[in-house]
Design a protein around this nucleic acid. Structure first.
Lengths: 120, 120
DNA sequence: CGGCATCCTCGCGGATACTG
DNA sequence: CAGTATCCGCGAGGATGCCG
């Protein structure tokens, strides 16, 4: 485990499987995807609009990775035109919660920082 | 704020200042640096050894960024040979705590996943 | 030992075009 | 609408060398 290895005397194993999941979650669009899906099930294009700036290719990759990781549930309806919905699994919801904790903290922290008098 | 913007109807502002701090914290070495400094004040070379695989250049960058962000305290002693110590500020400690929550969760999650019978 | 600066590689990630 | 495939720029990040 990541923290454990650092807290202990051992160095980090680069091949540690946690690294991959961690990189997925903390990736640029990974973070935002989790937050976006936190409360809502969304279709591909809805999600893409919310994450203003994602390329189609990257969003697909993130969603596929998360699906493999077990954080995202993909439901595809065989209709024309296609209709696919993405939602978080229970685990995904947990991860999203933790990420939200972090982003909320960042928001508060920067508010406090900017409130300080000695600021450029 | 990140979460707020996504929860609401507005899309994310790419120029949002939170994005930068978020990227620092969630960066490959940023995460590990926070964890490594969580309990200990460390010298540059000690830190470099703990984060097995960081290039000198990247570690310097991460530390400088965190110092600017107010998460890391740098104390340099003008002796020969040079001696510099890095520790977390109060805010840095808070951030490290949240990151640890996430990495711990990932560790547990993967343990559970691997314990499932239907696994390759 | 701590820290810059320089060079260079490599893959992340964007743009575009196409299909079911 | 939801993908897939291909091309490619660019910047993160590693290697190396030098200095206080």
């Amino acid at each position: 485990m990541l923290a454990g290895m650092l807290d202990g005397k051992k160095t980090i194993d680069p091949s540690c499987p946690s690294r991959e999941l961690l990189s997925h979650i903390t990736s640029r669009w990974g973070v935002l995807t989790l937050i976006a899906l936190k409360n809502k099930t969304l279709r591909f294009s809805e999600l893409r609009q919310k994450l203003n700036g994602v390329s189609e290719r990257m969003l697909i990759k993130v969603l596929k990775d998360f699906e493999k990781d077990g954080l995202v549930l993909r439901e595809s309806y065989p209709v024309v035109p296609p209709h696919t919905e993405y939602s978080l699994t229970t685990s995904g919801l947990e991860a999203a919660g933790l990420i939200t904790l972090l982003t909320d903290w960042i928001g508060n922290y920067q508010m406090k920082e900017n409130a300080k008098p000695n600021k450029s």
